[in-house]
Nucleic acid binder design. Sequence first.
DNA 1: ACCTGAACACCGTTCAAGT
DNA 2: ACCTGAACACCGTTCAAGT
Lengths: 241, 241
Amino acid sequence: MAAARPVKAVRQRRGRGERADIPITRDTIVATAFRLIDERGPDGFSMRSLATELGVFPATLYWHVGDRAHLLGLVEHEWINGIELPALSDDWRAWMLAVARSYRRHAHRHPNVARLMSVERARNTDNLTIPDAVVGALARLGAGDDLVHAYNAVVGAVQGFVVIELARIGDPTPESMADTERDLRSLDPQRFPHITSHFDHLAERALSVRWSEESVQLPDESFDFLVGLLIDGLAARFLPR
Amino acid sequence: MAAARPVKAVRQRRGRGERADIPITRDTIVATAFRLIDERGPDGFSMRSLATELGVFPATLYWHVGDRAHLLGLVEHEWINGIELPALSDDWRAWMLAVARSYRRHAHRHPNVARLMSVERARNTDNLTIPDAVVGALARLGAGDDLVHAYNAVVGAVQGFVVIELARIGDPTPESMADTERDLRSLDPQRFPHITSHFDHLAERALSVRWSEESVQLPDESFDFLVGLLIDGLAARFLPR
DNA sequence: ACCTGAACACCGTTCAAGT
DNA sequence: ACCTGAACACCGTTCAAGT
């Protein structure tokens, strides 16, 4: 699909039925929607703001791409296509880690778009390149009758981890962030003995113990740790020793 | 927090400033919002529909619970409080599996509410009971400097798995479901050699290879398989052998 | 303190009418 | 085939005005 070319058409009066001078295409619409969501977040995106950005009336979008849900499906498609699939390697451990990291890296590049994945999902019949490669790797490992479960476990955990880490921590105003920090720092050691005793170790790094916007991304080590657990677990189950 | 008592107040005319005969409380609002989201899904829920259900004007809600984001935070709180924490046990493996299953079971009981978790998050300073218990278990295992990462890996994977499995598969009309099924059944074996060759094994059971609404819930075995991988991985890292 | 009534600035979507 | 212009049925939120 074409790269997102910057379309900043200034709305200029046009009579009924008159063509736009820059012809609106399906690709332009999807690319612009992608850019708007990416830059302004889901709240700054609407069918109407997209139409304005493109210099057309909202109804035009419906003619080209159908309704909002369908458009978001196309954006999802675009996003998934942007993930680089690491070259197949003999070392399946290294390959799986590379795939997982590649997926996460792409999500971090476009967090606002990536957040859509968990909410408004489109058809999933295309974009099966990575799933197919993962199924292949697991089958080659000898997953056998556990193939589905190994697949679901790995994909669900990796994809899910990224969704959870990117989930918004409430509204990102300085005040609410300060409030959260204060509340977390003054937790009752009676009720939460373990979090409080390991507070310095967890603060701003652990899920549920974050407050600033910069800490949306969890430590890379946490992700690698997870993938390590999965890989070792698979090896223990399927590889002869 | 009080159980959700059924409030079906029929809107009856009231003059300016007049009190409702059934007094509206914060708890009633939250409980009713929970019920509406649960029953009708996020699309059937709005501040206005909630107000109508309660027999008041929308502005009343703002007086009691603040804006929509804040209300959803309270609903989230309510949901999380509903998770049963299994009694601490000496067998940490059994305990972790029990906690993970308990979380997932609760999500499946209220899928529409659970879906909110990944999107509109409130403050997370309360409801730290389960996180605290998990931190405690991992610390006791001897996670040491890897405590954060072990915690993030386990919680991110378990919570994330559930989010991914519950994510909507596009719109659930019979036609679109049939379309997806047809597309999946007629995948190109050249492009997707592994999925096609294991199709019968994966169909309706694997992420990305589902089409019906009944298959939102992945096989329980897949979830248990994941938790097994995590537990074994932790044991291999932290337990002396 | 608590609620009404109305208003404001938005939405997504549809549709007849134009070229 | 492609787009306008207007309309419809909704939103979330605010605010003065009532009791």
